[in-house]
């Protein structure tokens, strides 16, 4: 009997260890494949020039239009999301402080909102855009993406805020400060790492998301100069170029994918560095 249970233990330990290490392997594999394919086509011109004539048949140019469009959209959307999301997270933690049930109900709704796929947000953004009389433009893209990432901002910031000791809030009240003063002077300072993490996480999501801007932001070879002009985005640029029959253009899709991966990886590393200074690993 004893032997069998030890064999079982060994078997499952090594099997589960194998799957865990394979996760690291998968990540390295994905990054290696994208980088290996992409660095061949990556050049100065790729990053710093918009497409020129005949670009999609192998002509000169780069994907600056898409990089700029993505950054504009992600930046604008993050701005809106922070403007709405941060006070909302503070509200949940200050005004609903004594109502555990309501607080949990709000978190429950926000989590469900997080689960709605981005293509649905895209379809909603499209109807909203028609309703407001907009064309496919930078503005419509920003609005759609901001709706997509606001729940992320709220929940990420809220996760940090709800770990702040209640005594701190009560001490602030006891000194006679109002609820808003406690929220904007105490909670924001104490949860600043959460604020930055929420900011970076939603920015990364905004840059990487494609399905929501597919309907709303349009696509153009020019760098947008105005809110009512259409804007190309990096994920869509990758997607369109990858479906091209011409090998040179497909190579460029890989290069653009490399650029996107580098952007996402650096955002993730910075977020990790900042939040790592204030929290500790939360397994165990």
């Amino acid at each position: 009997m004893r032997k069998r249970k030890n064999i079982e233990e060994k078997f499952f330990k090594s099997l589960s260890g194998l799957t865990t290490y394979s996760l690291i392997g998968i990540l390295l594999f994905i990054i290696a494949v994208v980088f290996y394919k992409g660095f061949n086509a990556l050049s100065f011109e790729m990053i710093f020039k918009p497409p020129e004539g005949g670009y999609y048949y192998g002509g000169e140019g780069g994907v600056l239009n898409a990089i700029a469009g993505s950054v504009y959209i992600a930046f604008g959307a993050t701005l809106i999301a922070v403007f709405i999301g941060i006070p909302a997270a503070l509200f949940i933690n200050i005004y609903l402080n004594r109502m555990k049930k309501v607080q949990n109900l709000f978190r429950y709704l926000l989590d469900a909102l997080w689960g709605i796929p981005s293509i649905v947000y895209g379809a909603f953004g499209f109807t909203l855009m028609l309703f407001m009389g907009l064309n496919a433009s930078l503005l419509a893209g920003i609005i759609t993406v901001s709706i997509l990432i606001t729940p992320i901002v709220v929940r990420t910031f809220d996760d940090v805020l709800c770990n702040i000791p209640k005594g701190l809030i009560e001490a602030s009240f006891a000194l006679g400060s109002t609820k808003t003063e406690t929220a904007f002077k105490i909670l924001i300072k104490q949860g600043f790492s959460g604020f930055i993490t929420a900011l970076l996480l939603s920015f990364g999501r905004g840059i990487g998301d494609a399905a929501s801007v597919l309907f709303t932001a349009g696509y153009t070879d020019l760098i947008p100069r105005n809110l009512d002009e259409p804007a190309a985005t990096l994920p869509l640029a990758i997607f369109f170029q990858l479906s091209s029959p011409i090998p040179v253009v497909r190579e460029r899709a890989y290069a653009a994918a490399t650029v996107l991966t580098i952007i996402i990886l650096s955002i993730s590393l910075v977020a990790r560095y900042i939040s790592g200074r204030n929290t500790f690993s939360n397994i165990k």
């Binding site: 996760l23 690291i24 998968i26 990540l27 994905i30 494949v33 994208v34 996480l201 990364g204 999501r205 840059i207 990487g208 998301d209 494609a210 399905a211 994920p235 990758i238 997607f239 990858l242 899709a253 890989y254 994918a257 996107l260 991966t261 996402i264 990886l265 955002i267 993730s268 990790r272």
Partner: peptide, 16 residues
């Protein structure tokens, strides 16, 4: 690793 995997955009998974 889990965080980065969760943060990689879906188009990159598509390319892969």
């Amino acid at each position: 690793v889990i965080d980065i995997l969760a943060g990689i955009p879906s188009v990159i998974y598509g390319v892969w």
